[in-house]
Design a protein around this nucleic acid. Structure first.
Lengths: 338, 338
DNA sequence: GTTTGTCATGAAAAGCTTTTCACAACCATT
DNA sequence: AATGGTTGTGAAAAGCTTTTCATGACAAAC
């Protein structure tokens, strides 16, 4: 049986209030009582019940995190960043898998709210009006990570996807590529789909490369298998291609697999650039050049922003864009333009 | 401001007890009051405060999970299995990263205990006496996942590592290999180090393959970079090797990278078998043949066992060994023995 | 020597819910 | 008509802590 403050009080021969004071405001009580209390605490292995504390303080030091699919490697580093930051500011994380499923998302939010969490980090998914309603009713601080919203003014942490895609494409162009294909997410995805396509197109336009989107971009979901098929379709309709921009590392690995299997040399015949810089990017062959997102930092930054919001600090910038960069490895080759 | 049961009672013109009954035991109250209460609940968007409930029931429906390094891909699937199972039996997970660090492990356990979690899943790490003391004092159900303890009788879920390593090695032998190297974890690691080495040695012995451990096994930590170095060392001291047993997929990928970079054909010149069957195993080239652990199921099974323990069910088997299997892909080749 | 002020401490309320107990009303039994 | 048994409801305790308020003791100031 766990001991309570009452047990400590009894053992130390003082009132409950005194015990509480010893623990929270030690200099309010004289030394000999203090010592007796401390002694009793030790002896009984007492530690306060956070439920009771939470009830009083209306603060649980627990944060909720909603993630569409935890098993996706993308989140491994993000979660670690979150956990480390949370630990640092004395919080715990309840992580919920939403499975890309509104029902589950709602039921998770309901229990999180019942458990009186102090704030929420919502990752990756766009905010639809019905989710917005729920968030508003929850009435607690919320931070978006790896997503944002232009309609609603939730604070957010993410990379500038359009610019990142632009930079990736420009990088390929500067390496001499003009025949560039793209494996992309859906145009209907306003977070990591459309903006990356727009960045890609803008780079081509800026550098005067003519372009027929229908024959150069292949769309598909984010998993390896579909991306492999997408790469096959792309390569079939665009065999002159010398470089592919895959909008996730998983897509890039699928492209690499396809190319290997068809005896296309990487990067000698076809260069590949990915997106995310998950740990996998350094583990494949050839090592993947990719648009790096600071995954760990995105996670920790999101938590730190949330913690500040909870403590009533006003954020100087609502939409926080983290720096991305091109992580050069071995999957892109400079080619002779002429 | 969140509404309380008091607000609902006032609005519905009944006592607090009646509201509580409507929510927990509806047939105890007459229809018209019940309807009025339900109406008020809806109108006020009321949901009960889990802290107060937890205080009474001594049950929080929250479980703690301790993981040495969340960013390791190994845990992505395990956590998902845990989360799904937890969700199914109405629990939430507080996941803590221990960083392989006793200090942090202890501080995490302390807050988890203060938050009155109902049980703990402890993953991967061996149980040392001091940890044991802490667990015992916590006095709540605990399940070990991907680890176990022979000294203490905590229930556990894992694969039979010795047998799995034996099977992997035998698989290579049956494919005609006799010159087999190993990239292993430390012999001092009683969970995934020593047993796998023992399984490896037993398989060789059983099949009458002579063997000088010093020149055939390379030890190192689990990260890619070290494993790459290990592979280099192994290949240097054992160039006749036709197959490598890498005791994690990450190690196997490092081996593959090394071989690619030195123009050794996989699996034509050297076969590689991994361990874990993380999602990466299907994304590399060649696709990795590996000893599959049922990661998702290990996670969900651990949670289900924990939930049963919490509900006072006595487990029929304490040490639960999940089935492993050889997931055949493309990194191992049958060779001609003569 | 009375008053003011400080300090240490305990009693009790508050935070929100569930559950036990008691009460009243009603019907059925004798 | 009196007793016994249901049934529906509210008051209050319990779960554990923090914090406010009140009290008593004692030193300092007039």
């Amino acid at each position: 049986m766990k001991s309570t403050i009452k047990d400590v009080a009894r053992m130390a021969n003082v009132s409950i209030s005194t015990v509480s004071r010893v623990l929270n405001n030690p200099d309010l009580v004289v030394k000999d009582k203090r010592d007796k209390v401390l002694q009793a605490v030790l002896e009984l292995n007492y530690s306060p019940n956070a439920l009771a504390q939470g009830l009083i303080h209306k603060r649980t030091k627990t944060l909720g995190v909603l993630i569409p699919d935890i098993s996706n490697l993308f989140y491994a580093e993000v979660i670690k960043g979150m956990e480390d930051a949370a630990h640092e500011c004395g919080n715990n994380l309840i992580i919920c898998n939403t499975d890309n499923n509104q029902q589950r998302r709602l039921s998770s939010l309901k229990v999180l709210s019942e458990k009186q969490i102090d704030g929420i980090v919502f990752t990756s998914e766009p905010i639809f009006p019905d989710s917005y309603e729920v968030f508003k009713r929850l009435n607690i601080p919320i931070v978006l990570a790896a997503t944002h919203s232009l309609e609603y003014d939730f604070p957010s942490v993410k990379v500038d996807d359009e610019q990142a895609a632009y930079d990736a494409t420009e990088y390929l162009i500067k390496k001499g590529h003009t025949m560039i294909g793209m494996i992309s997410g859906s145009m209907l995805d306003p977070i990591s789909g459309l903006p990356r396509i727009q960045g890609f197109l803008r780079a081509l336009r800026t550098h005067g490369i003519e372009f027929v989107p229908e024959s150069r971009i292949e769309y598909g979901n984010y998993l390896f298998k579909d991306s492999y098929k997408a790469m096959k379709a792309l390569h079939t309709k665009f065999p002159e291609m010398t470089a592919v921009f895959a909008t996730s590392d998983e897509r890039a690995l699928a492209a690499i697999s396809y190319l290997h299997e068809h005896n296309v040399k990487i990067p000698d015949e076809v260069s590949v650039i990915g997106f995310d810089n998950t740990r996998m990017a350094g583990m494949c062959y050839p090592k993947l050049t990719t648009v790096a997102q600071p995954l760990y930092e995105m996670g920790s930054q999101a938590i730190r922003m949330l913690d500040r919001l909870i403590n009533g600090v006003v954020l100087d910038e609502k939409r926080f864009y983290m720096n991305h960069w091109i992580q050069e490895r071995d999957s892109v080759k400079e080619i002779n333009r002429f």
